[in-house]
Design a protein around this nucleic acid. Structure first.
Length: 268
DNA sequence: ATGACCAGCTTGGCTGGA
């Protein structure tokens, strides 16, 4: 099975690119982030006409996550238990969508950006990651009610908005005092390993291979990017990963997202 | 060359992105 994740930065602007990517890459399950539309605005017919099923979570023009699958979509969950809210009138944003596709519990995740370190959005980001990690740990932990399953196949995929290593940004000095590289964010990211998950893209992808390049200042042609799109896999799923590809070509040309797809190959 | 921000909404100047 082939499982991919992609922050598409507006599905309505790039539905054609997404479908072309699916067919070119032979991807079975595609987790999308920043779809930037409400559920009723999602161009699901583009995918359904090509034989895919679609699950969406979108409440406004911001955020938005979706899963597109040709191996089934079952038990769709919009948001996770305990997911923090944001805003003056607190709202649980469309940043997490779970569905079971081809036997894998896939979570399409768009972790909050954090904005600046002294912005309340940064505390929200850290809280969001902690609550997600607690839930993710529970999914692998058997309880008296049989809530968790240590052998579950779970993929936590998406735009984590964290660069875990200095080499995950083109110039660490540019990021001094900014979000995405702080010890607190990196600790929140690493805690998923303590919870029993393995980040499975690292070992397959060379250092300084990026997944995001800002639209401004020739960042892509200069290869001044960031690596912030990752996949944490449960033990049984991690054991199935045979390869990982970052589709750098998808950043080229007019109308590209600022992120590119990250593709996992899973043994049958 | 891979090229000099982009998306959405309030349609024109904001917000959010990282």
């Amino acid at each position: 099975m082939r499982l991919a994740t992609w922050n598409i930065n507006s599905i309505r602007s790039r539905a054609d690119r997404a479908l072309a990517f699916l067919e070119r890459s032979g991807t079975d399950v595609l987790a999308l982030q920043e779809t930037k539309c409400k559920d009723e605005q999602f161009p699901r017919e583009v995918f359904e006409a090509a034989g895919y099923e679609v699950a969406t979570s979108g409440y406004s023009q911001w955020n938005g996550v979706a899963i597109v699958s040709r191996v089934g979509i079952a038990d769709v969950e919009r948001g996770f238990v305990g997911q923090p809210a944001w805003g003056e009138e607190p709202v649980v944003e469309a940043r997490a969508l779970g569905a079971t596709c081809g036997g894998v519990r896939v979570w399409s995740l768009y972790i909050p950006n954090g904005r600046e370190i002294d912005n309340p959005h940064y505390a929200y980001k850290l809280e969001w990651l902690e609550r997600l990690r607690e839930q993710a740990a529970s999914w692998l932990t058997p309880g008296p009610d049989g809530a968790g399953d240590p052998s579950a196949q779970i993929a936590l995929v998406g735009d984590w908005n964290i660069a875990p290593l200095d080499e995950d940004v083109w110039d660490i000095e540019v990021f001094a005092g900014r979000t995405h590289v702080t010890p607190a964010e990196r600790a929140a990211f690493a805690a998923f390993a303590t919870a029993g998950y393995t980040e499975v893209t690292r070992e397959h992808i060379p250092a300084r291979t990026f997944t995001y390049w800002d639209y401004q200042q020739l960042r892509f042609p200069r290869n001044e990017g960031m690596r912030i799109d990752f996949t944490y896999a449960s033990p049984t799923l991690a054991a199935r990963v045979t390869g990982v590809t970052i589709d750098r070509n998808e950043r080229k040309g007019k109308g590209a997202s600022d992120h590119v797809p990250v593709i996992l190959d899973l043994a049958d």
